[in-house]
Amino acid sequence: MTWRRHPRSASADDLLTALGRLTDRARKTAEIQKARVELAEVLQRSMLPSDLPEVAGLRVAARYAPARNGLDIGGDWYDGFLLPDGSLGLSIGDVQGHDVEAAAVMGQIRIGLRAVATATVDPGEILGRANDLLLSVDQGLFATCSFLRFDPATGVVESARAGHVPAVWASGEGCGIVEDETGVPLGIVPGEVYPVVRRRLTEGDALVLVTDGVVEGPAFPIEAGLGAVSELVGRAVRERVSAGGLAAGVMGLTALTDHTDDAAVLVLMGAAEAAVPE
Rank of each mutant, 00 (worst) to 15 (best):
D14H: 12
V121Q: 00
D151G: 07
L135Y: 14
D51Q: 15
V214L: 04
G80V: 03
S146A: 13
A30H: 00
V229W: 10
N69T: 15
P195C: 01
G187H: 12
R4N: 03
Y64F: 12
A40Y: 01
C145S: 15
V196W: 07
T154G: 06
E216S: 07
A61M: 05
G249K: 05
C145G: 09
S230Y: 00
V137T: 04
A236H: 13
G70Q: 09
L19Y: 01
D151Y: 02
R161G: 11
S136D: 12
R149G: 07
V208L: 04
R68S: 09
A18H: 04
S87K: 01
E158Q: 14
L141S: 10
G191I: 13
V210P: 04
M47W: 05
A160T: 13
A272R: 12
E41T: 11
L253N: 02
R36A: 09
S11M: 10
R68Q: 07
V208C: 02
V265P: 02
L90R: 09
A56G: 08
F142I: 03
R5P: 15
Q44K: 04
D76T: 01
V233N: 05
L246P: 02
A143M: 11
I126L: 10
A103E: 03
A153R: 15
G97Y: 03
R21G: 01
D212G: 02
G227R: 03
E239H: 01
E192G: 00
D180I: 10
P166E: 05
R4Y: 15
V250E: 11
A143G: 13
S242P: 07
V265H: 14
G225T: 06
A104T: 14
M251D: 09
A143P: 08
E179V: 07
V37A: 00
